[in-house]
Design a binder for these strands. Structure first.
Lengths: 156, 156
DNA sequence: TATTGTTATACTCTATAACTATA
DNA sequence: TATAGTTATAGAGTATAACAATA
């Protein structure tokens, strides 16, 4: 990366490129940045047979340990009915299993299978690598970290 | 604080807050930042009876002048069949009109109505204000501009 | 043959409501 | 009564395929 910082910093507050009325808007920028991240991540995860949403479920399971579907749904910020389908898909691929929870038989415990845990480790590494490639256009690691910090601030 | 040493090691680029495995990921950050921007923008546009996608169409029309649906669709990066429905909605609200284009009668020309142009000006201002509120958690205007510059770099 | 607008259709992601079995 | 999981269903947003009119 050998570009001058001034190439990337927007000096004035009015963009001057043609079409910036649209392409300079936050909604447009977020949509397209996200689209690009989605493409990179999808390609990176394809060899493992899971998608980004399923990896997110696995990250939650890894963080929480064996968990009820409801807890995982809350943690992920999705509806519990959405979680049913996500776990269905992961269970069909033998990445996780549902176990009855004896102490409260309304619940399932969801946990990794042995090969599911190994698949998760590899898929997470592939996704990490995709994130790094996504961030590659930024100047350096400090810029990448700052972007993350700003996004964190914007999520309340 | 007398935990095992391995608990206290501050790793290099790993965030240490609980749950950061998920919430520190770019996909998660983008999704939630965008969700927040969506909520603010939706609320800001509601009084004008249009949504963010429709405002994007109007921004394209404003940038291009009277345009065919296909040109507008290309500029926006959506399918021409998607544009049909978008123009349908805007025309139903008398914000734009379709006019036959005499030089090439396969085409329509889409353009603002008089009150549509005025509504657009006000809606755009409201959306701008929503963007500013969205960016409010950032330190200052320079940080906001830098975020935009970084997003632009990430969209290729 | 190719292009513009259109319709019909389908797919993805997600949520709400209602059912069941448990508590 | 309340909760966990499930099913059925619906809505938003989008795309593909096929058609009519026109070039």
């Amino acid at each position: 990366m050998s570009r001058d910082a001034s190439d990337q910093v927007q000096r004035e507050s009015e963009p001057s490129e043609p079409g910036a009325e649209l392409t300079g808007r936050l909604g447009f920028l977020f949509k397209h940045a996200q689209q690009r991240l989605y493409e990179l991540t999808s390609a990176a995860l394809a060899p493992y047979g899971i998608n980004g949403r399923e990896l997110a479920v696995l990250l939650v399971l890894d963080a929480l340990g064996p968990t009820s579907q409801q807890d995982a749904a809350r943690r992920l910020g999705v509806d519990r009915t959405t979680m049913v389908a996500l776990i269905d898909a992961l269970e069909a691929k033998s990445v996780v299993v549902r176990r009855p929870y004896e102490e409260d038989r309304r619940r399932n415990v969801v946990e990794f299978t042995e090969r599911g845990r190994e698949l998760f480790r590899q898929a997470r590494a592939a996704s990490d690598e995709a994130e790094r490639r996504f961030l590659d256009p930024l100047l350096d690691d400090a810029a990448a970290e700052q972007l993350k910090a700003q996004l964190r601030a914007l999520c309340r």
